[in-house]
Design a protein around this nucleic acid. Sequence first.
DNA 1: GCATATTTGTCCGTATGTATA
DNA 2: CTATACATACGGACAAATATG
Lengths: 236, 236
Amino acid sequence: MTTLDRPESVAALFAGTNKPSLSSTGERVADALRNLLIEGRLDPGTRLSEEAFAQGLNVSRNTLREALRLLAHEGLVVHQLNRGVFVRELTADDIVSIYQVREIIEIAAVRNASTHSPGGISRVRLAVTQALEAAETGDWSGVGTANMHFHNALVALAGNQRINAMIRQTLAELRLAFHVMKPIKEFHEPYLPVNQEICRLLEAGRTDEAADELAAYLRTARDQLINAYTALDTTA
Amino acid sequence: MTTLDRPESVAALFAGTNKPSLSSTGERVADALRNLLIEGRLDPGTRLSEEAFAQGLNVSRNTLREALRLLAHEGLVVHQLNRGVFVRELTADDIVSIYQVREIIEIAAVRNASTHSPGGISRVRLAVTQALEAAETGDWSGVGTANMHFHNALVALAGNQRINAMIRQTLAELRLAFHVMKPIKEFHEPYLPVNQEICRLLEAGRTDEAADELAAYLRTARDQLINAYTALDTTA
DNA sequence: GCATATTTGTCCGTATGTATA
DNA sequence: CTATACATACGGACAAATATG
């Protein structure tokens, strides 16, 4: 089990991080850590030493603990009493569970998109073009991020803040699973045209067909991910 | 704007509260506060003084703050920078939003219930009988709690922990709206037979019909609640 | 609009309990 | 089994922001 306990290496993780300071320190720390986790820069299972992170971020342990509790509540880290905080390790069951949530929420949101938000589709389109641009430069992590934005934008079509928050959190958790596998390209490239197709259908007002396409995508993506993930378990 | 700043009155709120101590102090404090909020014993808009609650609960301010951050993350309280923590005041839009979430998640969960969890239906039945018992003694707050358990049990049929957590949190938020209205009886009594009917359909394996019944219930309940809620706004 | 009191935000030091080498 | 490291939790301190008269 790895453990990040050197303040200097923690500080290095946050090099170049601006702090626009609109909210409290605790929330900014939580944001910074959340980005680290979503970007896959902390391996699942790693222990996050309170002292090292407090010193590395130049905040008190109290402040850091507030942030860690939030992330634990979001499921990005797990909190073991008297043992510390560890980067969440997703099981294959977790992935199945996450995809069931996605299926339920994303499809319902797209189906409810007909009447609402005419301008919201432009954000879907934006995410598609961003994914294509990232793919051209070979930035597959960027493609993953753009893909996350794509699905967030899809769900935003329902115009419901709570649903947005739910899917954002769920997709953030899912990224923990993606990053343990190196060939991210193989997981994202095949779905670029699918995303384009979903976007085109939405722009044409054919929301039900878009929802069907999305449903098919979610199932194949889940199966592919599960296969790769269980294969990792046996080899490791 | 009311504000709870006397430690003694805070302590009184927690009289008779056991602390089985399996988790951290912060989480136990969060649990205690969450119960208070769900039971409607704290009026929406009330400020929760850090010092008063820390003293009233016999914990340090740091520990209390951890608990308050969790509750803010759950939406039961709102956190205003440098101003404090207030019991959440739901708007009519919030209620619409919550019912949309319920519609999406609860119905999908019931529809997915067919294959899973044969024993889970017994917990649905249990919640129904508990609601009936509470109604007989005129304990309408108890009916509300049993009703919450009923819907939690419905969603549990899908066998997905994430979905359970989502609906639990959503229903907890909704209770903030119920408690601002005195005649809780009128809001729960009409739905007791509906719950019974849904339960019977599930026991008979007719899950799709149960889902349809649930959908109809959610819409009428939402409309009734919104009407009463907006009426309150205009009179207050 | 101003001066004052209150409250939050944040940090530090420390004592205690728990887990691990 | 002992020693060490670490998390837990507390209390005090002070600056900054906010509320109050």
